[in-house]
Design a protein around this nucleic acid. Structure first.
Lengths: 350, 350
DNA sequence: TTGAAAGCGTTACCAG
DNA sequence: CTGGTAACGCTTTCAA
């Protein structure tokens, strides 16, 4: 409902005169109908005479009337609000996720209540706020404890986990297949003749980090590479740099580095090329994970797994909305395959 | 209010028994007091006997009672909700802004209603939603027309513009000094002997883009560089690449490129080095603007202006809250100086 | 300090 | 199809 100047003036004058925003009673009074009639005009499929409907909408528009979402929510038990929990907004990869979620939810006429979890912010406080605001559902791209998830269940708030698996049977989730992706990557490296692997893992408490890490280690072990050195980073550029430096120090013959994220891989590439004087990929291959924007930049052309973020966020929104409409619907776990980007940061054979 | 298992069980059992969330009446009934008393317990400075207060809080905690924010807002005319409008979340620089705003607002016990403006989304729809949800205020890091701003004024919703100036006298704003920053940058380039400038500007409809662009052109003109070639990009990496290619084509002696954003500068660096075979900064200097994360990566070490995002977002939140508390307070325009990062993408003299 | 009662602006359920 | 009336869960007078 775009407003043109033509129907803005009355709004302004109504507010100027009364000092408050018009209610359905104001509309009803001026249109000479009951308040119920006004309410029905804005309901999806209410029964109302076309002529009356026309009149009411005209008056409403002249007054600049909009139903008050608070009052609607209070009585109808539906806020059309979804809480999005996201840790580490500065992560390079999350902005894309957030934009995707926002777009998908907006399309379904749902608003996003954003909770960006900094290191210091208490998740429990956030849950408290979510509860107070009666959101219809939650999408969590952040670490949630068993107990915290249980609280959502207690409160009957549907939750969809993004890129993490909840242990409970109740939590739905949308994930990118870390295991498959990481295996593709490592398999190619092995097939291309790499023999001296190092791993730059994420922090221990990261779900995706550990998943990718263990997938890589498992496959390497299967292929006879038993004790692959690993250092831990925190998904940051700096930790990627530090990681490869450490790996190179303890492994003189290092020829392949598997990083748990693009950003760490990028850091590793910079450090390897600029500080360690290594040629990437000629004498050192480096692979990442995510397929974030900078991975495609010419200076890096990272060999990585691209997550289908658009489809994943759309799926997360769809799943959540379904569970909101029908709380009895079963919690589904959707797993998307990532796409391998060959890039040029790893020496790959045919 | 972190919840321990000890006080979660009762919550669950209450909900299980009654099937609904506890209200202040439930607490009142069980505690044997009036509903008003319960309400007062959760009000900032209400008068209530300490003993009674103790009792009520105990019962409330056992029931897992939380005041319903919707009902509170409906009556008190305060939602503690702020709408954040942001265009182009994928912008590399906005995530930091969003994280900063979120942190600053959360600290003040205000929640963020996020509106991410994609190309297709209608701003007017967003304004409609904002109005329906009775947010207390708006922070806008997006393009808003005169009329749109007027609507906020009509609705008595305070707005703080982020990095853009509103023409009306009513809109407060927080900005980074593009003019000063850009002048510093260009001044240094001139002083260091650059003579053949090119500009990669932002899109015409970008406020900051035009500000930076005209600042650069003005200073260059003042210094006798009359007709500096300019190409327009869209702040993307790809457009930075295309931009420098075009500039190099029309200016064989090009020795300095002024870009309206870091991302375009990074694209320009990659193109110049990799495709055009230029040595940056030895035979071509490239400068950006923003001071976003990737600008500091070793492969780029961009010469740029770093915006004090943390202070800016804190200021935006503070200004908005002040205008919410006291609608009569004057609209302030705060201008922050950026900090020049010398980097290594430009050949700078002492 | 306390409790009763009147809203806040809607939707939902009634008779008519 | 229509209008009256009862919620929704809270804050806020106002008397006691």
């Amino acid at each position: 409902m775009p407003k043109r100047t033509a129907d803005r003036a009355p709004t302004a004058s109504f507010i100027a005169q009364s000092g408050r925003r018009p209610t359905s009673y104001d509309v009803a009074r001026i249109a000479g109908v009951s308040q119920s009639a006004v309410s029905r005009c804005f309901a999806p499929n209410a029964s109302i005479a076309p002529a009356k409907r026309e009149l009411i909408l005209k008056v409403a528009s002249e007054l600049g009337y909009r139903p008050n979402a608070l009052a609607q929510a209070l009585i109808s038990k539906r806020t059309n609000l979804v809480a999005v929990l996201i840790s580490n907004l500065t992560n390079l990869y999350y902005p894309e996720v957030l934009a995707g979620l926002s777009a998908s939810l907006t399309k379904r006429d749902v608003r996003v209540l954003l909770f960006s979890l900094g290191a210091e912010s208490e998740v429990d406080d956030v849950i408290d706020q979510i509860w107070r605001h009666s959101v219809d559902g939650v999408i969590a791209a952040a670490r949630l404890s068993e107990q915290q998830l249980e609280q959502f269940a207690d409160h009957q708030i549907p939750v969809v986990m993004y890129n993490r698996l909840a242990s409970g049977p109740n939590a739905a989730s949308v994930r990118c297949d870390s295991v498959g992706g990481e295996r593709d990557l490592v398999e190619r490296l092995i097939a291309s003749g790499h023999r001296h692997f190092g791993i730059i893992a994420g922090p221990e408490d990261s779900y995706v980090g550990e998943e990718r890490n263990s997938a890589a280690r498992t496959l390497l072990a299967e292929r006879g590479f038993g004790d692959v050195p690993m250092v831990r980073g925190d998904f940051s550029y700096a930790s990627g740099r530090a990681g490869v430096r450490e790996l190179a120090r303890i492994m003189p013959k290092l020829d392949a580095v598997v990083c748990a994220s693009d950003l760490m891989a990028i850091g590793a590439m910079d450090e390897a090329r600029i500080e360690l004087g290594r040629d990437v990929p000629k004498d050192l291959s480096i692979v990442g994970f995510d397929g974030s924007g900078p991975a495609t930049w010419e200076s890096y052309r990272l060999t990585t797994i691209r997550q289908p973020v658009g489809r994943m966020t759309a799926a997360a929104a769809a799943m959540l909305m379904e569970r909101i409409e029908d709380p009895a619907s079963p919690a589904e776990q959707r797993l998307f395959s990532g796409q391998m980007i060959e890039g040029a940061s790893a020496r790959l054979g045919a």
